[in-house]
Design a protein around this nucleic acid. Structure first.
Length: 499
RNA sequence: GGCGGCAUACCCAAGUGGCAAGGGAGCGGUCUGCAAAACCGUUAUACAGCGGUUCAAAUCCGCUUGCCGCCUCCA
């Protein structure tokens, strides 16, 4: 089956064919390190992590580069505000970014180059553009002349005339066309500066990606990605610089992820509805956030609110619970293999759903990374497996039934892990989930265990009114008790409280 | 003003020419001392509206309405 992805450049789904067979060169725009990352960054990071994992699973050798913009006005602004060096700010937020990405459970990219470590490479590109007469010096700055690059606007699908007509462009006397953008910015006294043929200064924003992508991935890269907001001007300008300088296509497939809204509002600092990754991870399992993100197609906007996030959390718990039960009940007798017809006789539907899962998931992912559809298939198998397990009550499975359940659980686990889900041991997950959620109930672990013990005694004496009173007391704090032969377990209910 | 996207059940969400995936919530049931979880059953003659193409349309084309994004730093 063909592997197709939506290419922003053409506005269509296209079959993916890498430049070199078996190898993929992918560049994803990283962040400007001047503040903590928010859940919009998390979505982008998760989306490209899933893409990266998928490409690897398909046997591609992937070189995945994600840069840091570590010199920029916003970094300088923050440094000035705190009275520290720009490097202090940049390093602080690079560290924070790595903590966040690790917290989210992302595979590290192949490389994470820093803009400031590639100044010579950027100067080289700018010099080339100046030589060709496409860039010009004005005062202490160097600008890219958009009129000299005939296909300017091809990525964002807009014509130069249209942009100029309606754009609110600040008046800059140095520019010969208002749409021209800066390649090199002369430094003011006291600002960080690097030597260049145009005097001391620092690079413009867009040039770093063109220079670093070329250095690490070559003149033409396979996949270039980032958030939708980067289409214009950032990626448009990257194309202009790189293609004007080197005369070769810059990137073949452009992938852009949609935004995260919060309670149906655009997330923005002025609205005060920014949620940082670390805030979210303080009260939610990273895989819950991941399931939330990949339950919707990556190009659509997604709304982050209690209800949609809660659904993801409950779904993840159910997946873990089914896998846990399956592993427990089949632990003793899962190894022996049986012929197909024997397994089918145990549960024909479960057998079929399990066997067809790899092809179904592959088909979904091959179709522009349709993770939402893939997740749908995952839940179909989960329900079939859970139903099968339930038939046995509390008994362990043996022989062909154990083999069938183990096979289904393995496939479920394998394909969840392909998308970065169900990475933890179920017991570890549930323990972590309890620890994350307990603080939201206002009850300490010790208080809780005292009440559970009181209730145990009451039940032992058949004092059910007292036992139920304790259950109700805890339920009012969203702590749900679950009695089982092994004792009473507890978890924090993800169900919103009535009223 | 220019460019683009979206509109599927109470909610979230796949599907993009051939009987409308999946999840959540609700309701009924099984299980349970009572619960919870889980499972079973149930929930769109129908995909914003109108018109067209087709043997066949949620899916293609046109128009209308309503939302949203980008055009300025931004994932």
């Amino acid at each position: 089956m063909a592997f197709v992805l939506f290419n922003t450049l053409t506005g269509k789904k296209e079959e993916f064919v890498p430049l070199e067979p078996g190898r993929v060169k992918m560049y994803v725009c990283g962040i400007t390190v001047y503040d903590l990352c928010h859940i919009g960054h998390a979505r982008s990071a998760i989306v490209f992590d899933v893409i990266y994992r998928f490409l690897l699973s398909q046997g591609y050798q992937v070189c995945y580069v994600r840069n840091f913009t570590d010199i920029d006005d916003k970094i300088l602004g923050r440094a000035a505000a705190e009275g520290v060096d720009f490097r202090t700010i940049a390093d602080r937020f690079i560290r924070a970014f790595h903590e966040d990405m690790e917290g989210l459970g992302l595979l590290p990219p192949t490389m994470e180059p820093l803009a400031t470590e590639h100044i010579p490479e950027m100067i080289e590109v700018i010099e080339k553009l100046v030589e060709k007469g496409i860039a010009y010096q004005a005062g202490t700055d160097v600008y890219f002349s958009v009129e000299r690059f005939s296909s300017y606007g091809k990525l964002s699908g807009r014509a130069l005339e249209d942009m100029v007509a309606g754009a609110r462009v600040e008046v800059d006397e140095n520019k010969s066309n208002p749409m021209d953008f800066v390649l090199w910015k002369g430094s003011k006294p006291g600002e960080p500066a690097w030597q260049s043929p145009w005097g001391p200064g620092r690079p413009g924003w867009h040039i770093e990606c063109s220079a670093m992508a070329r250095k690490y991935l070559g003149a033409t890269i396979d996949i270039h990605g980032g958030g939708k907001d980067l289409v214009f001007p950032h990626h448009e300008n990257e194309i202009a610089q790189a293609e004007a300088a080197f005369g070769q296509p810059f990137a073949r497939y452009w992938i852009h992820n949609g935004f995260v809204n919060i309670n149906n509002e655009k997330m923005s600092k002025s609205l005060g509805n920014f949620i940082t990754i670390r805030d979210v991870l303080g009260c939610m399992h990273p895989e819950s956030l991941r399931l939330f993100v990949i339950s919707k197609h990556y190009r659509s906007p997604v709304d982050f609110c209690d209800e949609t996030v809660g659904e993801a959390e409950r779904g993840l718990e159910r997946l873990y619970a089914t896998v846990e039960t399956a592993l427990e009940k089949t632990a003793k007798d899962a190894e022996t293999d049986y012929p197909e017809d024997i397994l089918k006789r145990e549960d024909g539907e479960l057998y079929e759903k399990a066997r067809s899962l790899p092809a179904m998931i592959a088909e979904a992912m091959n179709n522009d990374f349709n993770t939402a559809q893939a997740i749908g298939y995952i839940f179909v198998l989960q329900r079939n497996l859970q139903r099968f397990l339930d038939k046995f009550g509390r008994k362990s499975l043996k022989g062909p039934s154990a083999r069938l359940a183990a096979m289904a659980a393995d496939l479920l686990l394998k394909h969840c892990r392909l998308m970065g889900l169900l990475i933890e041991e179920p017991a570890v997950f549930f323990d972590r989930q309890r620890k994350l959620k307990l603080p939201t109930t206002g009850m300490s672990e010790q208080q809780l265990y005292e009440l559970i013990e009181l209730r145990r005694k009451a039940r032992a004496e058949k004092n059910f009114p007292e036992a139920d009173r304790i259950r109700k007391e805890l339920e009012a704090k969203r702590i749900q008790l679950e009695d089982s032969p092994e004792g009473t377990k507890w978890r924090v209910s993800l169900q919103p409280l009535e009223g």
